[in-house]
């Protein structure tokens, strides 16, 4: 039964000699390195960007004598040595809260309707398709909408509420999509268990589905707000520029963190450029914390289940 070495047509050493794969493997290796180089491009650019911001932040503090204390306690100013970030930070925080209030309930409500109630009808499909399209509308267009409809249409002027409307509409599709995903992740067995006890659909959603989905909804909402806090163009369209003082309330004029950074970055003065770098570090810190909270919620939820 076993192969005799002398009868074997090919022995081990010559077995694959008719197949020359050296070129193919070299081609594969070359391709692999090309892919690695391409993948590293994004990473290198990220590193460069962060490096540039951090070094400008550092020289801002050392060479341009930007005091972090004054930076956080003074309002913006036309004079570079007196310019601070306080008004912008407070405006951004107020903007965040108002955006959350405006977008959260409508966004979560839309998602519940689409996931739990909506029949498979043409209207539902229209809403879904429209949602995908809204997510692709440039942010500056939301600014135009708020400018024409709210700032000048209703006539409330370039105040925080107008900015919050623009940002709220902008992040609504993001909140809806992430809420839909969170609702979808709740298993049907949970719903059926509730229906079997005689609960109505709404009771089931309110008492069973929403509590189970809330960590996912919160994560999605925080990420959406993190997107909103860095948005600049809609606020510029609304008219949030050239305001230096701290807003006194939702009906006051304002300039938020990103618009203040733009204002500084667009100045020819080196001092202003470095003020912008310090502002960016503050803005990125906000994003870092918000993303951290979102990841924490997601992680805790995952480990519980």
């Amino acid at each position: 039964m076993s192969t005799e070495t002398e009868t074997g047509v090919e022995d081990g050493n010559t077995l694959f000699s008719d197949i020359d794969l050296s070129w193919e493997h070299r081609k594969n290796e070359l391709f692999r390195w090309l892919l690695i180089a391409a993948s590293l491009f994004g990473v290198v650019m990220l590193a460069l960007l962060l490096f540039d911001v951090v070094t400008d932040f550092y020289t801002g503090l050392t060479e341009f004598n930007i005091s972090l204390y004054e930076f956080f306690t003074q309002d913006g100013s036309q004079e570079e040595t007196r310019a601070g970030f306080k008004g912008a930070v407070i405006a951004s925080i107020m903007l965040m809260i108002m955006t959350a209030v405006l977008a959260f309930f409508v966004g979560v409500g839309s998602a519940i309707y689409l996931e739990e109630y909506a029949p498979d009808s043409r209207i539902t499909r229209l809403i879904e398709a429209n949602l995908a399209n809204l997510a692709g509308v440039p942010s500056i267009v939301y600014g135009l909408l708020a400018l024409a409809a709210v700032v000048n249409g209703i006539g409330i002027g370039p105040i925080l509420i107008a900015g919050a409307v623009a940002l709220g509409l902008l992040v609504m599709p993001i909140i809806i999509v992430s809420t839909q995903e969170a609702l979808r992740a709740v298993p049907d067995s949970v719903r059926n268990g509730s229906y079997a006890t005689g609960a109505t659909k709404w009771q089931t959603i309110r008492r069973v589905v929403l509590p189970a989905a809330i960590p996912g909804i919160m994560t999605g909402t925080i990420l959406a707000l993190a997107r909103a806090i860095g948005e600049t163009a809609p606020l510029i369209m609304v008219g949030a520029l050239f305001v230096n003082r701290t807003p006194s309330g939702p009906t006051d004029r304002f300039s938020a963190m990103p618009t203040q950074i733009y204002n500084w970055a667009a100045q020819p003065s080196e001092h202003f450029i470095h003020l912008a770098a310090v502002g960016i570090v503050v803005l990125l810190s906000f994003l870092f914390v918000m993303n951290g909270v979102a990841i924490y919620i997601r992680h805790r939820y995952e480990t519980e289940v």
Binding site: L46, L49, V53, A226, R227, I229, G230, E231, T232, A233, P258, I261, Y262, A265, A276, A277, I280, L283, L284, L287, N291
Partner: peptide
């Protein structure tokens, strides 16, 4: 996730 204004900078 980096805001566009930072890319502008």
């Amino acid at each position: 996730g980096i805001p566009t204004i930072v890319y502008g900078y």
